[in-house]
Write a protein that binds this DNA or RNA. Structure first.
Lengths: 242, 242
DNA sequence: CGCTGGTTTGAAGGTCGTCAAGAAGGGTGG
DNA sequence: CCACCCTTCTTGACGACCTTCAAACCAGCG
């Protein structure tokens, strides 16, 4: 079992313990790996022949384009996350998927998912749980857009993303590698890139964080959390139900 | 089989045909019905002992409260929708659920869901599909908040909701009963109630729609769709995969 | 009739977007 | 190593959009 095969297993076993058979099914699910350059489309909205990706390495995002050309990023995926699980059962994809950094992904089809549901109900339950966790993040993102101002929004996003990265060992409380452009942040946060820039300056001047050259340094996490009114409850969904 | 028992069956059989056994399991799932007055909390964020509701009658909503008292409505549920399916596998609920009108709901627990996944994989797949459809609506809502202005946002929301209501026979192209307060709309759309009021006036003055006394009349659906840049692709997820 | 919840309107101000232009990097090729 | 590109970042000025505050209005209901 190589690293590629274990990343999904590691994620799903946070929820329930899985048997060797069940783990084997996850291995097969991740048998084929493909690599992509940074900033390429892995899938476009409206495409059929659905595949669900499992992100093995790198960062990616799901987004939608509006008729007027604006882009809204739905969420960012980090290693271990599904990409497009939501629409794997749909006839056509309801969103696009793009890499942010160079990425390596495995993929599976709706049919393979059906087989898992049929043969490995415990794995199916774990996938349902994982889907629920990802939706909880999308929901908090929605709250972020609807009811927080730009300062709170940026702060909240950067904390949340750090928490998620910490789970897979890619961040610490002091910061993390953060190759987003300000336009990425803007399209995720419903702001203009220029305003994101202003907000980042403000956060820097308040001695809360510094984001420069793809690296985020967090100077004052409690202060940042206070600005963001951050509560990590929605991320901390119990791994093992009683 | 009374109406209460069929509403979920009607929804899930849009996706795959179900056997009598499988339909029976859905009946049992909806055996207990409870009623609630309008504007009461069915569940609060942070509560444990998760139940997932199936809305049999009336309207409800999922929302989150921020520390500063602001409310963001995640989505509205109409008859046939799940309420809180996302967090039924979680230790505690990540959101609150409230009735908008008087409602009747049935409910099931995470354990019952497990049993279905074990014994009725086809039903499990259909539930996964339904969950995906509901998430697609939340995602479009997120796009709405992030990248549309108030006018587009209100127009888009009212069209989308009408489309959803039409599926269950509660709306026509001419309009629908719409017991939302302007504050409900504001909390869903990330606006102030006062601004929602102004936008509604604008839509009225443009001869697009009239919303008054709980009733929405749509005067010019194409015009409204143009304002909203509405595309119904995300709602129209193929019922029967090949 | 008066209360209550919801709607409507105006005025003032703040947040955020747009436009325009320049600076700072990072990569490429001479 | 330098010149030149391109992408990304940065800053200022201005205005649009939306919020807030305050007050009046309206409909339903005890």
């Amino acid at each position: 079992m190589d690293t590629a095969a274990t990343i999904l297993a590691r994620k799903l076993t946070q929820y329930i313990e899985l048997s060797p058979d069940e783990l084997g099914c996850l291995d097969r699910l991740q048998a084929h790996n493909r690599s992509f350059e940074r900033r390429v489309n892995l899938r476009s909205e409206g495409e059929s022949g659905q595949q669900c990706f499992v992100l093995q390495d790198g960062w990616a995002c799901c987004y939608k384009l509006l008729l007027n050309g604006r882009r809204q990023i739905i969420n960012f995926a980090i290693p271990g996350d599904f990409l497009g699980l939501r629409s794997v059962l749909f006839r056509v994809s309801d969103h696009s998927v793009a890499s942010v950094t160079p990425v390596r992904v495995s993929s599976f089809s709706g049919r393979e998912l059906f087989e898992i549901i049929n043969k490995f109900p415990r794995v199916a339950a774990a996938i349902l749980w994982a889907l629920s966790c990802e939706e909880a993040i999308v929901v908090e993102h929605l709250v972020n857009l609807g009811r927080r101002n730009a300062l709170e929004r940026v702060a909240h996003f950067l904390i949340e993303f750090g928490e998620r990265l910490q789970v897979v060992g890619l961040a610490s409380d002091q910061g993390y590698e953060c190759p987003f452009t300000q336009e990425d942040l803007a399209d995720a946060l419903g702001l203009s890139a220029i305003h994101v820039n202003r907000i980042l300056r403000q956060l820097r001047e308040r001695q809360l964080l510094t984001l420069s050259r793809g690296s985020l340094q967090i100077h004052d996490l409690p202060g940042l959390a206070a600005v963001a009114q951050f509560s990590d409850q929605y991320l901390d969904q119990d791994r093992r139900p009683s």
